[in-house]
């Protein structure tokens, strides 16, 4: 069951579209449910589809198409590091190696305590601040150094 808080937020998104176009809010609705539950299970996706009155397969298509939806558990903090060209030119591989050794996981793995998951991201459109990462799809950290990464991880503990 969708929580009353999630429903309130989804209803706000629905105000942006014509009344007969509820499906348009599916991107936001999936984001809202993922933020609340940590990731999107098949059940979560069907609850969203039912609430919006759209076929479950159509909601599933959206959830599997866009990179920022997580279809398996990602731990408490999902750290996504951009490795695309502008970040690569400014040594994002140093940041990635540091994160891997510090957390003891590779890309797409979750730490045994369920706290961190490391992901490789595609361009986030903030290349002026390269190298960079974001946490849980929301907090962007730019101009990274290994010291800065340590400080971010410390804060998340």
């Amino acid at each position: 069951m969708l929580s009353p808080q999630a429903i309130e937020k989804i209803d706000y998104e629905l105000t942006k579209y014509p009344a007969d176009q509820r499906q348009a809010a599916v991107m936001s609705a999936l984001r809202i449910v993922q933020t609340e539950r940590g990731w999107l299970s098949n059940e979560s996706i069907s609850e969203v589809a039912q609430y919006l009155g759209m076929p479950e397969i159509a909601a599933m298509e959206v959830a599997t198409f866009y990179n920022m939806y997580d279809l398996s558990p990602v731990g408490k903090y999902k750290i996504t590091v951009c490795t695309n060209i502008s970040c690569m030119l400014r040594d994002s591989d140093v940041i990635v190696d540091h994160l891997k050794s510090k957390l003891g996981v590779g890309f797409n793995e979750v730490t045994p305590d369920g706290k961190f998951c490391l992901k490789e991201g595609e361009c986030m459109g903030c290349c002026g601040g390269a190298p960079l990462l974001h946490v849980n799809n929301t907090q962007m950290h730019e101009f990274l150094t290994t010291e800065k990464v340590d400080a971010i991880l410390e804060e998340l503990k």
């Binding site: 942006k16 991107m27 936001s28 999936l30 984001r31 198409f65 866009y66 990179n67 920022m68 939806y69 991201g121 595609e122 361009c123």
Partner: peptide
């Protein structure tokens, strides 16, 4: 006018 968002697709 409304703001809507993508979720990771170039």
């Amino acid at each position: 006018l409304y703001a809507v968002h993508g979720y990771g697709a170039y």
